[in-house]
C-alpha cells in the first residue's frame, strides 16, 4: 500500500476513534468507578448478581436464544428454496425480505404495537374469535417483535452461504449414492455452517441487548437487561451502574463474536 492510499482510511480512523474507541473507554471508566467518589470498584459490574438484574439477564438470554432458534427455523428453509429458485425470482424474494428494513425499526415496532394493542386490528380480530386477555405485555409479544425485526439478519447470511455452494458438489454427492436427505445433512448444511453461525450472531446480539422492543411490546412490564441499563441511565441517573452492566453484556457479546470468528473463516458476516 502506498503512502497516499493510507490517507484514504483517515475518515474511518477518526470515526472509529471518536465513536467507538473513546465511548468504549468511557464505559469502562464509568463501569469501574464509584458514583460520587470516582474510586475504583468492581461493585457496578458485580451488581449483575442482584436478584432483579440477574432475573432480567436470564429472561433476556432465554428470549434471545428462542428468538435466534425461531429465526433459524424460519430462515433456513426459505434460504434453501431461494437457492434452488431461478436467479431472477430469488432476487425478487430477497427484495421482499429486505423491503421492511428500509423502514425505520422504531416505526415497524410501533406498527406492531398498534396491531396488537387494545382496539388494534389483530387484537380485535382475536377478541372476536373468543380470545381473552392481553397480547401486549406478554413475553410472546416481545418475542414476536424480536423475530420480526431480526429475521432478515438471519436470511441474508444463510442465503449468501447457500448460494455459494457449487451445484457440482451436490451432483457429486448424488453420484456417490447419497439420497436427498444425506445431501442436505452431510453436504449442504456443513458447507452453509459459516452462514448459520454469522446469522445466529447477528440475531442473537441485537435481541440480547434490545430495550425498545420490550419497552413497546412488553407494556413496560417485561424488563430485559437492556431496559435495566436504560433506566439506570435515564431514571436513576446512575451512569456507573449502567456502564457496569453494559460491560457484563459486552462479555456475552464478545463470547458470541469469538464463536463467530472461530467458525467464520470466510468472512461471511463482514459481507453484510
Amino acid at each position: 500500500m502506498t503512502n497516499k492510499k493510507k490517507w484514504l482510511a483517515l475518515p474511518y480512523f477518526v470515526w472509529m476513534v471518536g465513536f467507538t474507541l473513546i465511548p468504549l473507554v468511557l464505559i469502562a471508566v464509568y463501569g469501574l468507578t464509584e458514583r460520587g467518589s470516582g474510586a475504583f470498584t468492581f461493585s457496578n459490574v458485580l451488581s449483575i448478581f442482584q436478584e432483579e438484574h440477574l432475573r432480567a439477564l436470564i429472561l433476556s438470554l432465554v428470549l434471545s436464544v428462542i428468538c435466534t432458534l425461531v429465526c433459524l427455523l424460519i430462515a433456513y428453509p426459505v434460504a434453501l428454496i431461494l437457492r434452488r429458485a431461478k436467479v431472477k425470482k430469488s432476487g425478487f424474494v430477497i427484495f421482499i425480505f429486505i423491503l421492511p428494513m428500509w423502514m425505520n425499526f422504531l416505526l415497524r415496532t410501533y406498527a406492531w404495537l398498534n396491531l396488537l394493542d387494545d382496539g388494534g386490528l389483530i387484537f380485535t380480530a382475536l377478541k372476536a374469535l373468543g380470545f381473552q386477555g392481553n397480547i401486549i405485555g406478554t413475553n410472546g409479544a416481545v418475542l414476536l417483535g424480536m423475530v420480526y425485526n431480526y429475521l432478515p439478519f438471519m436470511i441474508l447470511p444463510l442465503y449468501n452461504s447457500l448460494t455459494a455452494i457449487d451445484d457440482q458438489v451436490l451432483n457429486a454427492a448424488r453420484d456417490l449414492g447419497a439420497n436427498e436427505r444425506k445431501v442436505l445433512t452431510r453436504v449442504i448444511f456443513p458447507l452453509s455452517f459459516p452462514g448459520v453461525v454469522s446469522g445466529i450472531t447477528m440475531v442473537f446480539v441485537p435481541s440480547l441487548t434490545t430495550f425498545v422492543v420490550s419497552d413497546l411490546l412488553g407494556g413496560r412490564k417485561i424488563l430485559l437487561i437492556g431496559n435495566i441499563i436504560e433506566s439506570e441511565f435515564s431514571i436513576a441517573s446512575n451512569r456507573h451502574v449502567g456502564a457496569g452492566l453494559s460491560l457484563v453484556l459486552m462479555i456475552f457479546i464478545l463470547i458470541s463474536m469469538a464463536i463467530l470468528n472461530h467458525y467464520d473463516k470466510t468472512g461471511e458476516a463482514n459481507a453484510i
Partner: peptide, 22 residues
Amino acid sequence: QYPLVKGYVIDEVRDKMIAGDT
C-alpha cells in the same frame, strides 16, 4: 399487584382507556 397489571404506562394511558378494553 404485578401479575394483575396490564401494563406500566405513561402518555399512552389515554389511548388505552379510550379504547375501552381496560
